[in-house]
Design a protein around this nucleic acid. Structure first.
Length: 444
DNA sequence: CGGGTTTGACCCGCGC
DNA sequence: GCGCGGGTCAAACCCG
Protein backbone atom coordinates (compact mmCIF):
# COMPACT_ATOMS: atom_id res chain seq x y z
CA UNK A 1 0.00 0.00 0.00
CA UNK A 2 1.37 3.34 -0.93
CA UNK A 3 0.58 6.91 -0.32
CA UNK A 4 -1.37 7.18 -3.48
CA UNK A 5 -3.71 4.53 -2.32
CA UNK A 6 -4.06 6.26 0.95
CA UNK A 7 -4.92 9.49 -0.70
CA UNK A 8 -7.41 7.86 -2.94
CA UNK A 9 -9.20 5.99 -0.27
CA UNK A 10 -9.18 8.98 1.92
CA UNK A 11 -11.03 10.81 -0.74
CA UNK A 12 -13.45 7.98 -0.94
CA UNK A 13 -14.00 8.04 2.74
CA UNK A 14 -14.80 11.65 2.63
CA UNK A 15 -17.16 11.28 -0.24
CA UNK A 16 -19.61 8.70 0.77
CA UNK A 17 -22.69 10.67 1.34
CA UNK A 18 -23.42 12.88 -1.60
CA UNK A 19 -24.14 11.72 -5.05
CA UNK A 20 -21.84 14.02 -6.91
CA UNK A 21 -18.91 12.48 -5.20
CA UNK A 22 -19.76 9.10 -6.15
CA UNK A 23 -18.46 9.65 -9.58
CA UNK A 24 -15.16 10.69 -8.27
CA UNK A 25 -15.08 8.11 -5.64
CA UNK A 26 -15.31 5.28 -8.03
CA UNK A 27 -12.85 6.78 -10.38
CA UNK A 28 -10.41 7.20 -7.61
CA UNK A 29 -10.79 3.70 -6.39
CA UNK A 30 -10.09 2.35 -9.80
CA UNK A 31 -6.85 4.13 -10.20
CA UNK A 32 -4.60 2.85 -7.56
CA UNK A 33 -1.74 2.79 -9.93
CA UNK A 34 -1.80 6.49 -10.49
CA UNK A 35 -2.15 9.52 -8.47
CA UNK A 36 -5.86 10.02 -8.59
CA UNK A 37 -7.38 13.10 -9.98
CA UNK A 38 -9.22 14.68 -7.19
CA UNK A 39 -12.44 16.05 -8.39
CA UNK A 40 -14.19 18.99 -6.94
CA UNK A 41 -17.07 16.97 -5.78
CA UNK A 42 -14.85 15.07 -3.59
CA UNK A 43 -14.38 18.22 -1.68
CA UNK A 44 -17.99 18.97 -1.57
CA UNK A 45 -19.08 15.64 -0.54
CA UNK A 46 -16.40 15.56 2.01
CA UNK A 47 -17.75 18.68 3.44
CA UNK A 48 -21.29 17.54 3.30
CA UNK A 49 -20.64 14.24 4.89
CA UNK A 50 -18.55 15.95 7.49
CA UNK A 51 -16.59 12.94 8.57
CA UNK A 52 -15.24 12.97 12.04
CA UNK A 53 -11.81 14.52 12.07
CA UNK A 54 -10.11 11.36 13.12
CA UNK A 55 -7.36 10.23 10.92
CA UNK A 56 -8.11 6.74 11.97
CA UNK A 57 -11.25 6.76 9.91
CA UNK A 58 -9.45 7.50 6.75
CA UNK A 59 -7.06 4.73 7.24
CA UNK A 60 -9.84 2.49 8.27
CA UNK A 61 -11.50 3.16 5.02
CA UNK A 62 -8.35 2.34 3.30
CA UNK A 63 -8.06 -0.96 4.96
CA UNK A 64 -11.68 -1.55 4.46
CA UNK A 65 -11.23 -1.43 0.77
CA UNK A 66 -8.20 -3.55 0.86
CA UNK A 67 -9.43 -6.09 3.27
CA UNK A 68 -11.69 -7.64 0.73
CA UNK A 69 -8.98 -10.22 0.94
CA UNK A 70 -9.54 -10.29 4.67
CA UNK A 71 -6.41 -9.00 6.17
CA UNK A 72 -6.62 -8.59 9.86
CA UNK A 73 -3.29 -7.03 10.02
CA UNK A 74 -4.48 -4.24 7.83
CA UNK A 75 -7.38 -3.69 10.08
CA UNK A 76 -5.07 -3.16 12.91
CA UNK A 77 -3.05 -0.80 10.92
CA UNK A 78 -6.05 1.29 10.36
CA UNK A 79 -6.49 1.92 13.98
CA UNK A 80 -3.30 3.84 14.18
CA UNK A 81 -1.97 6.49 11.97
CA UNK A 82 1.41 6.65 13.49
CA UNK A 83 4.42 4.54 12.88
CA UNK A 84 3.85 2.48 15.96
CA UNK A 85 1.44 0.31 14.11
CA UNK A 86 3.95 -2.41 13.88
CA UNK A 87 4.16 -2.45 17.61
CA UNK A 88 0.49 -3.08 17.80
CA UNK A 89 0.83 -5.82 15.29
CA UNK A 90 3.53 -7.42 17.32
CA UNK A 91 1.53 -7.13 20.40
CA UNK A 92 -1.33 -9.03 19.03
CA UNK A 93 0.64 -11.67 17.31
CA UNK A 94 0.06 -15.16 18.61
CA UNK A 95 3.54 -15.22 20.03
CA UNK A 96 3.00 -12.08 21.90
CA UNK A 97 -0.11 -13.42 23.46
CA UNK A 98 1.67 -16.43 24.71
CA UNK A 99 4.75 -14.70 25.93
CA UNK A 100 3.09 -11.85 27.66
CA UNK A 101 0.42 -12.53 30.17
CA UNK A 102 -1.12 -9.10 29.88
CA UNK A 103 -4.76 -10.00 29.46
CA UNK A 104 -6.02 -6.48 29.94
CA UNK A 105 -3.96 -5.19 27.11
CA UNK A 106 -4.91 -8.09 24.91
CA UNK A 107 -8.55 -7.61 25.63
CA UNK A 108 -8.29 -3.99 24.80
CA UNK A 109 -6.56 -4.71 21.56
CA UNK A 110 -9.02 -7.39 20.65
CA UNK A 111 -11.87 -5.10 21.43
CA UNK A 112 -10.29 -2.49 19.26
CA UNK A 113 -9.89 -5.05 16.56
CA UNK A 114 -13.53 -5.98 16.77
CA UNK A 115 -14.53 -2.39 16.67
CA UNK A 116 -12.40 -1.77 13.66
CA UNK A 117 -13.80 -4.77 11.91
CA UNK A 118 -17.29 -3.57 12.52
CA UNK A 119 -16.36 -0.17 11.22
CA UNK A 120 -14.77 -1.71 8.21
CA UNK A 121 -17.92 -3.59 7.53
CA UNK A 122 -19.99 -0.48 7.83
CA UNK A 123 -17.73 1.42 5.54
CA UNK A 124 -17.67 -1.33 3.01
CA UNK A 125 -21.43 -1.40 2.88
CA UNK A 126 -21.39 2.30 2.44
CA UNK A 127 -18.88 2.03 -0.31
CA UNK A 128 -21.03 -0.55 -2.04
CA UNK A 129 -23.99 1.73 -1.83
CA UNK A 130 -22.02 4.63 -3.14
CA UNK A 131 -20.69 2.60 -6.00
CA UNK A 132 -24.13 1.37 -6.90
CA UNK A 133 -25.51 4.86 -6.80
CA UNK A 134 -22.66 6.09 -8.89
CA UNK A 135 -23.39 3.55 -11.55
CA UNK A 136 -27.01 4.48 -11.56
CA UNK A 137 -26.14 8.11 -11.84
CA UNK A 138 -23.72 7.42 -14.61
CA UNK A 139 -26.46 5.74 -16.57
CA UNK A 140 -28.67 8.68 -15.86
CA UNK A 141 -26.08 11.08 -17.11
CA UNK A 142 -25.60 9.17 -20.30
CA UNK A 143 -29.32 9.09 -20.86
CA UNK A 144 -29.58 12.77 -20.15
CA UNK A 145 -26.78 13.55 -22.49
CA UNK A 146 -28.55 11.75 -25.27
CA UNK A 147 -31.75 13.60 -24.62
CA UNK A 148 -30.05 16.80 -23.83
CA UNK A 149 -29.40 18.39 -27.18
CA UNK A 150 -32.94 18.60 -28.56
CA UNK A 151 -34.29 19.64 -25.22
CA UNK A 152 -31.48 21.92 -24.33
CA UNK A 153 -33.45 25.10 -24.39
CA UNK A 154 -36.21 23.81 -22.21
CA UNK A 155 -33.88 22.14 -19.86
CA UNK A 156 -31.86 25.23 -19.43
CA UNK A 157 -34.88 27.10 -18.29
CA UNK A 158 -36.27 24.48 -16.02
CA UNK A 159 -33.52 22.70 -14.33
CA UNK A 160 -30.21 24.30 -13.69
CA UNK A 161 -28.94 21.87 -11.12
CA UNK A 162 -28.90 18.68 -13.22
CA UNK A 163 -27.38 20.74 -15.94
CA UNK A 164 -24.57 21.59 -13.64
CA UNK A 165 -24.06 18.00 -12.86
CA UNK A 166 -23.86 17.16 -16.50
CA UNK A 167 -21.44 19.92 -17.05
CA UNK A 168 -19.32 18.51 -14.38
CA UNK A 169 -19.05 15.19 -16.04
CA UNK A 170 -18.44 16.65 -19.41
CA UNK A 171 -15.85 19.04 -18.22
CA UNK A 172 -14.12 16.42 -16.23
CA UNK A 173 -14.02 14.14 -19.15
CA UNK A 174 -12.89 16.90 -21.33
CA UNK A 175 -15.71 16.38 -23.75
CA UNK A 176 -18.54 18.05 -25.47
CA UNK A 177 -19.26 21.25 -23.79
CA UNK A 178 -18.79 22.74 -27.16
CA UNK A 179 -22.37 23.81 -27.46
CA UNK A 180 -21.98 25.79 -24.36
CA UNK A 181 -18.87 27.31 -25.69
CA UNK A 182 -20.69 28.27 -28.80
CA UNK A 183 -22.71 30.62 -26.72
CA UNK A 184 -19.72 32.21 -25.20
CA UNK A 185 -18.45 35.59 -26.03
CA UNK A 186 -15.35 34.11 -27.53
CA UNK A 187 -17.45 32.50 -30.22
CA UNK A 188 -19.49 35.57 -30.59
CA UNK A 189 -16.41 37.52 -31.20
CA UNK A 190 -15.63 35.36 -34.17
CA UNK A 191 -18.89 36.08 -35.84
CA UNK A 192 -18.63 38.19 -38.97
CA UNK A 193 -21.16 40.58 -37.57
CA UNK A 194 -18.94 41.31 -34.65
CA UNK A 195 -15.90 41.60 -36.83
CA UNK A 196 -17.53 44.00 -39.16
CA UNK A 197 -18.69 46.01 -36.27
CA UNK A 198 -22.11 46.19 -37.80
CA UNK A 199 -23.94 48.22 -35.29
CA UNK A 200 -27.23 46.37 -35.47
CA UNK A 201 -25.84 42.90 -35.40
CA UNK A 202 -23.21 43.85 -32.98
CA UNK A 203 -25.78 45.26 -30.74
CA UNK A 204 -27.80 42.12 -31.01
CA UNK A 205 -24.84 39.95 -30.25
CA UNK A 206 -23.43 41.99 -27.53
CA UNK A 207 -26.70 41.87 -25.71
CA UNK A 208 -26.72 38.16 -25.30
CA UNK A 209 -25.45 38.48 -21.80
CA UNK A 210 -27.64 41.34 -20.92
CA UNK A 211 -30.83 40.97 -18.96
CA UNK A 212 -32.83 41.71 -22.06
CA UNK A 213 -31.19 38.94 -24.03
CA UNK A 214 -33.35 36.06 -25.21
CA UNK A 215 -33.70 33.34 -22.64
CA UNK A 216 -31.97 30.83 -24.84
CA UNK A 217 -28.83 31.71 -22.98
CA UNK A 218 -28.64 29.17 -20.25
CA UNK A 219 -28.82 30.93 -16.97
CA UNK A 220 -26.92 28.19 -15.27
CA UNK A 221 -24.28 28.31 -17.90
CA UNK A 222 -24.04 32.02 -17.74
CA UNK A 223 -23.67 31.91 -14.03
CA UNK A 224 -21.18 29.14 -14.32
CA UNK A 225 -19.17 31.18 -16.71
CA UNK A 226 -19.32 34.10 -14.38
CA UNK A 227 -18.21 32.09 -11.40
CA UNK A 228 -14.53 32.56 -10.96
CA UNK A 229 -11.71 30.90 -9.24
CA UNK A 230 -8.82 33.05 -8.29
CA UNK A 231 -5.48 31.53 -7.48
CA UNK A 232 -2.89 33.51 -5.62
CA UNK A 233 0.57 32.11 -5.89
CA UNK A 234 4.10 33.29 -5.58
CA UNK A 235 5.79 33.17 -8.90
CA UNK A 236 8.40 35.13 -10.70
CA UNK A 237 7.10 33.84 -13.98
CA UNK A 238 4.80 36.14 -15.91
CA UNK A 239 2.14 33.51 -15.92
CA UNK A 240 1.33 30.37 -14.03
CA UNK A 241 2.04 27.22 -15.98
CA UNK A 242 -1.18 25.31 -15.79
CA UNK A 243 -0.88 22.95 -18.73
CA UNK A 244 -3.23 24.79 -21.03
CA UNK A 245 -2.45 26.93 -24.03
CA UNK A 246 -3.49 30.51 -23.71
CA UNK A 247 -3.67 33.37 -26.07
CA UNK A 248 -3.48 36.85 -24.77
CA UNK A 249 -6.27 39.00 -26.07
CA UNK A 250 -5.97 42.08 -24.02
CA UNK A 251 -4.28 43.97 -21.31
CA UNK A 252 -5.59 46.71 -19.10
CA UNK A 253 -4.47 48.82 -16.29
CA UNK A 254 -6.78 48.07 -13.43
CA UNK A 255 -7.68 50.66 -10.88
CA UNK A 256 -5.70 50.51 -7.71
CA UNK A 257 -2.96 48.33 -9.10
CA UNK A 258 0.10 49.61 -10.93
CA UNK A 259 0.53 46.22 -12.49
CA UNK A 260 -1.42 45.63 -15.70
CA UNK A 261 -3.98 42.91 -15.87
CA UNK A 262 -3.60 40.54 -18.78
CA UNK A 263 -6.49 38.69 -20.35
CA UNK A 264 -6.01 35.23 -21.78
CA UNK A 265 -8.25 32.87 -23.64
CA UNK A 266 -7.79 29.15 -23.86
CA UNK A 267 -6.67 28.14 -27.34
CA UNK A 268 -6.52 24.42 -26.91
CA UNK A 269 -9.78 24.06 -28.75
CA UNK A 270 -11.81 26.32 -30.94
CA UNK A 271 -14.48 28.04 -28.99
CA UNK A 272 -13.22 27.03 -25.60
CA UNK A 273 -14.91 29.49 -23.27
CA UNK A 274 -12.28 29.40 -20.59
CA UNK A 275 -10.54 32.65 -19.89
CA UNK A 276 -8.17 33.80 -17.33
CA UNK A 277 -6.86 37.03 -16.00
CA UNK A 278 -3.36 37.39 -14.71
CA UNK A 279 -2.27 40.22 -12.54
CA UNK A 280 0.38 40.78 -9.96
CA UNK A 281 -0.64 41.76 -6.49
CA UNK A 282 -0.14 45.43 -5.88
CA UNK A 283 1.11 44.90 -2.34
CA UNK A 284 3.43 42.07 -3.12
CA UNK A 285 4.44 41.76 -6.72
CA UNK A 286 5.87 38.36 -6.21
CA UNK A 287 2.30 37.18 -5.87
CA UNK A 288 0.64 36.30 -9.10
CA UNK A 289 -3.13 36.34 -9.09
CA UNK A 290 -4.65 34.18 -11.76
CA UNK A 291 -8.40 34.19 -12.15
CA UNK A 292 -10.06 31.43 -14.12
CA UNK A 293 -13.50 31.55 -15.58
CA UNK A 294 -15.49 28.89 -17.38
CA UNK A 295 -15.11 25.23 -18.20
CA UNK A 296 -12.98 23.73 -20.90
CA UNK A 297 -14.87 22.16 -23.76
CA UNK A 298 -12.09 19.82 -24.78
CA UNK A 299 -9.89 17.09 -23.36
CA UNK A 300 -7.12 18.35 -21.22
CA UNK A 301 -3.57 17.14 -20.93
CA UNK A 302 -2.73 15.68 -17.55
CA UNK A 303 -0.80 18.75 -16.63
CA UNK A 304 -3.86 20.86 -17.20
CA UNK A 305 -6.29 18.57 -15.49
CA UNK A 306 -5.08 19.62 -12.13
CA UNK A 307 -5.94 23.23 -12.46
CA UNK A 308 -8.97 22.68 -14.61
CA UNK A 309 -10.51 20.33 -12.14
CA UNK A 310 -9.61 22.45 -9.24
CA UNK A 311 -11.04 25.58 -10.70
CA UNK A 312 -14.16 23.91 -11.96
CA UNK A 313 -14.48 22.29 -8.58
CA UNK A 314 -14.23 25.55 -6.84
CA UNK A 315 -16.61 27.16 -9.25
CA UNK A 316 -19.12 24.44 -8.73
CA UNK A 317 -18.61 24.62 -5.07
CA UNK A 318 -19.64 28.19 -5.39
CA UNK A 319 -22.60 27.50 -7.55
CA UNK A 320 -23.80 24.18 -6.41
CA UNK A 321 -27.19 24.06 -4.87
CA UNK A 322 -28.39 27.34 -6.10
CA UNK A 323 -27.73 29.56 -8.98
CA UNK A 324 -28.19 32.70 -7.02
CA UNK A 325 -24.94 34.22 -6.08
CA UNK A 326 -25.85 34.72 -2.48
CA UNK A 327 -26.95 31.16 -2.03
CA UNK A 328 -23.94 30.01 -3.88
CA UNK A 329 -21.77 31.84 -1.47
CA UNK A 330 -23.57 30.45 1.48
CA UNK A 331 -23.27 27.02 0.08
CA UNK A 332 -19.61 27.45 -0.61
CA UNK A 333 -19.07 28.76 2.85
CA UNK A 334 -20.80 25.80 4.32
CA UNK A 335 -18.80 23.46 2.20
CA UNK A 336 -15.50 25.04 2.90
CA UNK A 337 -16.26 25.16 6.56
CA UNK A 338 -17.10 21.53 6.69
CA UNK A 339 -14.37 20.52 4.34
CA UNK A 340 -11.65 21.24 6.79
CA UNK A 341 -13.41 21.83 10.02
CA UNK A 342 -10.31 22.05 12.12
CA UNK A 343 -8.42 24.25 9.78
CA UNK A 344 -8.35 27.86 8.96
CA UNK A 345 -7.22 30.39 6.42
CA UNK A 346 -7.21 28.59 3.13
CA UNK A 347 -10.16 29.69 1.10
CA UNK A 348 -12.05 32.81 0.39
CA UNK A 349 -15.50 33.14 -0.94
CA UNK A 350 -15.92 36.60 -2.22
CA UNK A 351 -19.22 38.32 -1.85
CA UNK A 352 -17.96 41.73 -2.77
CA UNK A 353 -16.68 40.78 -6.17
CA UNK A 354 -18.96 41.33 -9.14
CA UNK A 355 -19.01 37.59 -9.74
CA UNK A 356 -19.00 34.81 -7.22
CA UNK A 357 -15.37 34.10 -6.70
CA UNK A 358 -13.39 31.52 -4.84
CA UNK A 359 -9.88 32.52 -4.00
CA UNK A 360 -7.31 29.83 -3.49
CA UNK A 361 -4.34 31.29 -1.78
CA UNK A 362 -1.11 29.44 -2.27
CA UNK A 363 1.05 32.09 -0.82
CA UNK A 364 1.03 31.31 2.84
CA UNK A 365 2.58 28.91 5.23
CA UNK A 366 0.54 25.95 6.39
CA UNK A 367 1.10 26.96 9.95
CA UNK A 368 -2.12 28.58 11.07
CA UNK A 369 -0.38 30.30 13.91
CA UNK A 370 1.36 32.44 11.42
CA UNK A 371 -1.86 33.96 10.26
CA UNK A 372 -3.87 34.81 13.24
CA UNK A 373 -5.70 37.56 11.41
CA UNK A 374 -5.93 36.00 8.07
CA UNK A 375 -9.50 35.87 7.12
CA UNK A 376 -10.02 35.63 3.46
CA UNK A 377 -8.28 32.93 1.64
CA UNK A 378 -8.15 29.29 1.02
CA UNK A 379 -4.52 28.78 1.68
CA UNK A 380 -2.64 25.95 0.25
CA UNK A 381 0.76 25.24 1.60
CA UNK A 382 2.91 25.36 -1.48
CA UNK A 383 3.76 29.01 -1.57
CA UNK A 384 6.88 28.93 -3.61
CA UNK A 385 6.06 26.34 -6.12
CA UNK A 386 6.54 27.81 -9.54
CA UNK A 387 3.36 26.10 -10.51
CA UNK A 388 1.18 25.64 -7.52
CA UNK A 389 -1.82 25.06 -9.67
CA UNK A 390 -0.79 21.56 -10.46
CA UNK A 391 -0.78 20.76 -6.81
CA UNK A 392 -4.25 21.88 -6.04
CA UNK A 393 -6.13 18.66 -6.42
CA UNK A 394 -3.51 16.82 -4.49
CA UNK A 395 -3.65 19.42 -1.85
CA UNK A 396 -7.35 18.98 -1.52
CA UNK A 397 -6.94 15.28 -1.39
CA UNK A 398 -4.30 15.46 1.22
CA UNK A 399 -6.14 18.00 3.22
CA UNK A 400 -8.90 15.56 3.72
CA UNK A 401 -6.80 13.09 5.53
CA UNK A 402 -3.90 15.00 6.84
CA UNK A 403 -4.98 18.06 8.63
CA UNK A 404 -1.68 18.39 10.25
CA UNK A 405 -0.14 19.54 7.03
CA UNK A 406 -2.56 22.27 6.31
CA UNK A 407 -3.49 25.45 7.88
CA UNK A 408 -6.99 24.78 6.74
CA UNK A 409 -9.77 26.81 5.49
CA UNK A 410 -11.44 29.86 6.65
CA UNK A 411 -14.35 31.66 5.26
CA UNK A 412 -15.16 35.19 4.77
CA UNK A 413 -17.78 37.19 3.04
CA UNK A 414 -15.37 39.61 1.58
CA UNK A 415 -12.31 38.62 -0.28
CA UNK A 416 -10.07 41.57 -0.58
CA UNK A 417 -6.60 40.57 -1.67
CA UNK A 418 -5.28 43.87 -0.50
CA UNK A 419 -6.07 42.83 3.02
CA UNK A 420 -3.57 40.06 2.84
CA UNK A 421 -1.15 39.93 5.70
CA UNK A 422 2.54 39.98 4.99
CA UNK A 423 3.60 36.70 3.46
CA UNK A 424 5.13 34.23 5.85
CA UNK A 425 8.42 32.55 5.28
CA UNK A 426 8.23 29.82 2.69
CA UNK A 427 7.52 26.33 3.92
CA UNK A 428 9.17 23.28 2.58
CA UNK A 429 8.06 22.11 -0.79
CA UNK A 430 8.18 18.82 -2.48
CA UNK A 431 11.45 18.94 -4.32
CA UNK A 432 10.33 16.78 -7.16
CA UNK A 433 7.44 19.01 -7.95
CA UNK A 434 9.48 22.09 -7.50
CA UNK A 435 12.27 21.06 -9.74
CA UNK A 436 9.97 20.31 -12.60
CA UNK A 437 8.47 23.72 -12.60
CA UNK A 438 11.63 25.48 -11.70
CA UNK A 439 12.89 24.17 -14.97
CA UNK A 440 9.98 25.64 -16.82
CA UNK A 441 10.39 28.89 -15.10
CA UNK A 442 14.02 29.07 -16.09
CA UNK A 443 12.95 28.57 -19.65
CA UNK A 444 10.78 31.59 -19.34
C1' DC B 1 3.40 32.75 -43.16
C1' DG B 2 1.03 31.48 -39.17
C1' DG B 3 0.43 32.27 -34.53
C1' DG B 4 1.01 35.18 -30.60
C1' DT B 5 1.35 39.95 -28.53
C1' DT B 6 0.47 44.85 -28.21
C1' DT B 7 -2.47 48.54 -27.79
C1' DG B 8 -5.94 51.93 -28.77
C1' DA B 9 -10.74 51.83 -29.45
C1' DC B 10 -15.05 50.22 -28.34
C1' DC B 11 -18.89 48.19 -25.58
C1' DC B 12 -21.33 47.65 -21.46
C1' DG B 13 -22.78 47.91 -16.66
C1' DC B 14 -22.96 50.61 -12.77
C1' DG B 15 -23.03 54.50 -9.71
C1' DC B 16 -23.76 59.27 -9.14
C1' DG C 1 -27.21 61.47 -18.88
C1' DC C 2 -22.56 61.14 -17.92
C1' DG C 3 -18.27 59.38 -16.43
C1' DC C 4 -15.69 55.54 -14.85
C1' DG C 5 -13.86 51.08 -14.91
C1' DG C 6 -13.81 46.35 -16.53
C1' DG C 7 -13.77 43.50 -20.40
C1' DT C 8 -13.20 42.62 -25.31
C1' DC C 9 -12.01 43.46 -30.09
C1' DA C 10 -9.04 43.73 -33.90
C1' DA C 11 -5.47 46.01 -36.67
C1' DA C 12 -0.77 46.39 -36.43
C1' DC C 13 3.21 44.42 -35.14
C1' DC C 14 6.54 40.83 -33.75
C1' DC C 15 8.75 36.44 -33.95
C1' DG C 16 10.23 31.83 -35.16
Amino acid sequence: MDNTTLTTTTTATATNSLKPFQVNLTCSLHHHDKRPLIDEHDFFSASASAPPPHHRHHNTMNSDILDSKVNTGLNLLTTNTSSDQSVVDDDISPNSHQKRPVPDQTVVILAELERTKAENQRLRERLDRVTAEYKALQMQVVALMQQHKPEEEEEKKQDAAPRQFMDLGLATNGAETGEEASLSSSERSKSPERKNGSSDDQEKNSREDSPSAPRNVDQAEATMRKARVSVRARSEAPMMTDGCQWRKYGQKMAKGNPCPRAYYRCTMAAGCPVRKQVQRCAEDRTILVTTYEGNHNHPLPPAAMAMAQTTSSAARMLLSGSMSSSDGLMNANFLTRTLLPCSSSMATISASAPFPTVTLDLTHSPNPLQFPNHQNHFQLPFPHSPNPSSLLPHIFGHALYNHSKFSGLQLSQDADPSSQPPPPPPPQLADSVNSEYAKKEREL
